[in-house]
Design a binder for these strands. Structure first.
Lengths: 194, 194
DNA sequence: CCTACCGATCGGTAGG
DNA sequence: CCTACCGATCGGTAGG
């Protein structure tokens, strides 16, 4: 990687961190530059505007997220369905707790700024579709009968996932664990015939 | 109401609207003043700073929300438990779809700005506690047996509620209705013995 | 409730 | 990648 490319990547990483923690308007180009040890105008050697930089960060975050979601397709199909579904839900949430990506997606996916609204929601919907695909794969390869039709089972899963997502950052990982446990217990009882 | 008090209320209302739609940093005092037909410095006749104005808006929003939550305690106890719980979930969400309050709570409750973080989360937790109280009241006065213990049933309800909350503004009310239907079906099946 | 005004900071450009 | 610089806008104050 060339020196210039290296700097560009550093800018993207620091911008991701600052945009996630402080927000778009609250983060100045000077903030970003300082954390990369360059001067603010130098950023324009790599990005044509603050907006453009932000859009690049969106791509980094969402591409990485989509890659992670798709990597979850490798779960062991011999495992019981419950285990597969639970692991998926937990992994998706754990992913958010581990890095700034989760905070970024929460901040800009849930309340997208006007300027980037369409772009963000498009990416956000794409990730939901990918998760739905994973769910259909798991559910269809299972012989278990479900109390509700597949669409309902899947949509409901997404809703619980989004609910847990809400607790990111505001609550400790321990509090999250408790809520996951409760939500999962009811969800699983709700879709299976006992 | 005196002329001055009237203006103060107008400022609070417009500030609520703009802070909800655009965000704290993206809303200037000039924006607020213009929409109230006064000049920006005049705001200082009523509030000592932008931060102070914002805190006042927080109080308006959360007090109104708490009042609404408590008003939900008046549901007809003779109705079946399912109906009572469903109505509560739907009413809480409908409340958000009706006014800017929902957008405000979503924006600042889910990703609170550093400066107001503690204050906002405190108010937010208070509202969750009030909702939990309503749930315990409904569940305890019911003779129905539940598959999980009360804490689990309640926490899970909150999680579904928060999931649906997530769809506010990003999705149409119709899309919300579909997701509510799916989430509710599974939730209800999950807590009751069939 | 207004006019006049302030220092600080913002995103961005020119030119190297 | 930097220095020097720009116009615009910000929250806020003085004094009425």
């Amino acid at each position: 990687m060339s020196k210039g490319e290296e700097t560009k990547q550093k800018i993207l990483q620091q911008a991701l961190m600052l945009f996630s923690v402080k927000g778009y308007e609250e983060t100045s180009l000077k903030d970003i530059a300082t954390s990369v040890n360059i001067k603010a105008p130098s950023i324009y050697a790599y990005f044509k505007s603050k907006e453009s930089l932000f859009e690049n960060v969106i791509d980094v975050v969402m591409d990485e997220y989509l890659f992670f979601i798709r990597s979850q397709a490798d779960t062991d199909v011999s495992l019981p369905t419950e285990k597969q579904l639970y692991t998926l839900m937990d992994n998706l949430n754990k992913y958010f707790y581990k890095q700034n990506l989760g905070l970024f997606i929460k901040r800009y996916g849930l309340v997208p700024p006007e300027k980037f609204r369409d772009y963000l929601l498009h990416k956000y919907n794409e990730s939901e579709r990918e998760i739905r695909k994973l769910l259909y794969d798991i559910l269809e390869s299972s012989s278990k009968p479900y109390k509700s039709d597949l669409d309902t089972v899947v949509t409901s899963f997404i809703c619980v996932l989004d609910g847990l997502f809400t607790y990111l950052v505001n609550y400790s990982e321990q509090e999250y664990e408790q809520r996951l446990k409760a939500a999962w217990e009811v969800y699983w009882q709700g879709i299976t015939t006992s």
